[in-house]
Design a protein around this nucleic acid. Structure first.
Lengths: 120, 120
DNA sequence: GCGATCTGGTCTATGATCGAGACCGCCGAC
DNA sequence: GTCGGCGGTCTCGATCATAGACCAGATCGC
């Protein structure tokens, strides 16, 4: 598993780690996914909840997540316009392993903060 | 867990997801960690195995991972110089949840590739 | 002796990327 | 009429990554 990380090794398969990093390895995707976890949200709601994301990056991130099938976008033709984003089943299934990562992060936050302080 | 993602919410705690993203959310950290998983490696060995990382980014990434306590750096005063990198226990423990993510990636690679193709 | 080579990096020039904030059309409230 | 909310897009600098040249120190072939 871990040995399959060449850009594209002899077997020609594109390497899962690299793919997952391509999909969600940027600054915001994970945050958006996590913010969307509790349920349907609107654009400005995401903007507010995440707090320090620019509209541009939020828009871009959402479009990419939509393209990759992690979130679904639903436009309601009202005034003012209402656009809702929700996790697809794929997006939800992705949250599963993510939870493991977050749990780890919570458990080891202190250890890393300590390591960082000690570092010369 | 997932609802704790504000930049720094009322409770003042720095939000685990954001932290984990700060630590390993960049393009190369995860790849380096995974490459280092099988055991001790030298700088140029990492460079070769990862393949498309620049020396600069590899150097920078390694220094950050070292600072954060994920990898240990050992310099042998020989000629030519030899520098070895290895995972610390913290780094190894991090690989645990990562494996879940990689498994997910492998299982869902096809689904995402499909979603991407369908995307208008 | 004399250059080539190996190592683990750093430095520099150049291009990609990102964030802040202005701007947009639409409409209802004031 | 003009102010605001909505869901974005556009433009402008600042930041960031990438490729590739360069470095010291020692050893190797010749």
């Amino acid at each position: 598993m871990l040995d399959e990380l060449m850009p594209a090794d002899a077997s020609g398969q594109p390497c899962a780690i690299r793919d997952v990093l391509d999909w969600i390895g940027d600054q915001w995707s994970l945050l958006v996914l996590a913010t969307l976890a509790p349920g349907v949200k609107r654009f400005s709601q995401l903007e507010r909840e995440i707090g320090d994301v620019s509209k541009q990056m939020l828009s871009k991130t959402l479009r990419r997540l939509e393209q990759d099938g992690f979130v679904a976008r639903e436009v309601h033709a009202e005034v003012p316009p209402r656009v809702e984003y929700r996790l697809t089943p794929l997006g939800m299934s992705f949250l599963e392993p993510m939870r493991g990562l977050i749990r780890w992060a919570e458990a080891n936050q202190a250890a890393i903060a300590a390591a960082r302080r000690v570092a010369t």
